[in-house]
């Protein structure tokens, strides 16, 4: 097992640490696996606190600076905690042409939420993502795992009601 001292962190439970160790152990000797490790660890914790990034870097025998550089480069990784439900609004061309900007304005206004931010009660995070490849349904929003197509400023708040 990875024998580095686990830093204390409020958002990471013992079970999470165990899972993180397994991820590191499995990928330790595969070159280029750092992005996979970071992704899987983010799935466990829901974001990547700096303490965790350092822990992963040590476990994978990579410079901490290099791993932080990878985290900050890719938009998938988040250094801040996310809400219980992540709203991903597609800002691809087709969705833009079909009025996603109005939808975003409505969500921001309703929940006092800014792009890239999380509501105070950690209910929603709002992310503007590049094309989701579901242009046939534009404009598109993904909440958690659910894809909502053909959304409009008028109906978007109603679609979000079920996510508590």
């Amino acid at each position: 097992m990875t024998c580095f001292i686990k830093p204390h962190h409020d958002d990471i439970t013992q079970t999470m640490w165990q899972k993180i160790n397994i991820v590191i152990e499995t990928n330790k000797y595969t070159s280029g696996a750092i992005i996979t490790v970071l992704r899987e660890c983010q799935e466990i914790v829901n974001y990547l606190p700096v303490e965790l990034i350092d822990y992963i870097a040590d476990g994978m025998s990579l410079p901490r600076s290099e791993v932080f550089g990878v985290v900050s480069f890719y938009s998938l990784f988040s250094l801040k905690p996310k809400g219980r439900h992540t709203i991903k609004v597609c800002t691809g061309t087709a969705c833009y042409v079909k009025g996603i900007r109005e939808v975003i304005n409505r969500i921001e206004g309703e929940f006092d939420l800014k792009e890239g931010g999380t509501t105070e009660d950690r209910r929603f995070s709002l992310e503007c993502v590049r094309c989701l490849g579901a242009c046939g349904l534009a404009p598109v929003m993904v909440v958690g795992e659910d894809t909502h197509g053909d959304i409009a400023a008028e109906n978007v708040i109603k679609s979000l009601e079920d996510y508590k």
Partner: peptide, 11 residues
């Protein structure tokens, strides 16, 4: 890595 917005052929 189909990144062009508005493209979904590869998917």
């Amino acid at each position: 890595d189909e990144g062009d917005p508005g493209a979904f052929m590869d998917r």
